[in-house]
C-alpha cells in the first residue's frame, strides 16, 4: 500500500482539521476532551500515515473513532478495577472544564446532555452533511440505526429545550421522562 507522503498528508490534514475537531467534540461532548482527542488522532495520523488513495476525512474520522473507543475502554477498565483514587484516572475528564474558566454556551450544554452515539450521528448528518449511508459505514452500523439514532437525538434535544421552560412550549413537557445526562 503506497502511503501519502508527509507533506501531502500534512496539507490534507489541515484541510480536514475543522471537521475533525467537530467530530472529536461530538464523541467527547466537551471541548476540552475533544481537543485532547484531536491531538491524539493527529499524532496517530502523522505517525502512521494514510494510504495514498484514502479519503482523508473518512480516514481521519475512523482513526479518531478508534482512539476514542480505546480511551473509553481504558477508562472503564480503570473504573472497574476500583483504582479511582489514582489521580490520573480521574483527571482527564471534567477537571479542565472546572478549572478552565471557559464557559460552555447554552448550545454546548444542551449537546452535552445527549449520549455520545446520538451526538455523533447528529454531527455527521446535520453538520457535516453526510448521507445516512456514509455515516453508517463510518460507524459500522445499519442505516436503520443511523435513522433511529438521529430521530432520538432530535427528540431528546427538543425535550431538553422544552424542559428549560424558557421557550414557551406548553403541554407535552409534563409527560417527559427526564433525560439522562452524560450518556450511558
Amino acid at each position: 500500500m503506497q502511503g501519502k507522503n508527509a507533506t501531502g498528508l500534512h496539507a490534507e490534514l489541515i484541510e480536514v482539521l475543522t471537521p475533525l475537531r467537530r467530530y472529536c467534540y461530538s464523541l467527547t461532548g466537551n471541548p476540552y476532551d475533544a481537543d485532547d482527542l484531536l491531538q491524539d488522532t493527529l499524532e496517530r495520523l502523522l505517525e502512521r500515515g494514510a494510504p495514498s488513495d484514502a479519503d482523508i476525512r473518512k480516514w481521519a474520522f475512523r482513526i479518531c473513532r478508534n482512539r476514542w473507543i480505546d480511551e473509553m475502554r481504558f477508562r472503564n477498565v480503570r473504573a472497574a478495577q476500583d483504582i479511582g483514587d489514582m489521580p490520573d484516572a480521574a483527571v482527564f475528564d471534567g477537571e479542565a472544564a472546572i478549572e478552565g474558566h471557559i464557559e460552555l454556551s447554552q448550545a454546548e450544554t444542551a449537546i452535552a446532555s445527549l449520549a455520545p452515539e446520538f451526538r455523533e450521528v447528529l454531527m455527521l448528518v446535520a453538520v457535516e452533511g453526510m448521507k445516512y449511508k456514509e455515516a453508517a459505514e463510518l460507524i459500522d452500523i445499519p442505516v436503520g440505526t443511523v435513522m433511529s439514532r438521529l430521530a432520538r437525538a432530535r427528540h431528546q434535544l427538543v425535550e431538553y429545550g422544552s424542559s428549560d421552560g424558557d421557550d414557551g412550549v406548553q403541554g407535552e413537557s409534563a409527560n417527559v421522562v427526564p433525560i439522562k445526562r452524560g450518556g450511558k
Partner: peptide
Amino acid sequence: TMRDAASNV
C-alpha cells in the same frame, strides 16, 4: 443547536 455548539467549539 448542534450547529451552534459545533461552531462554538
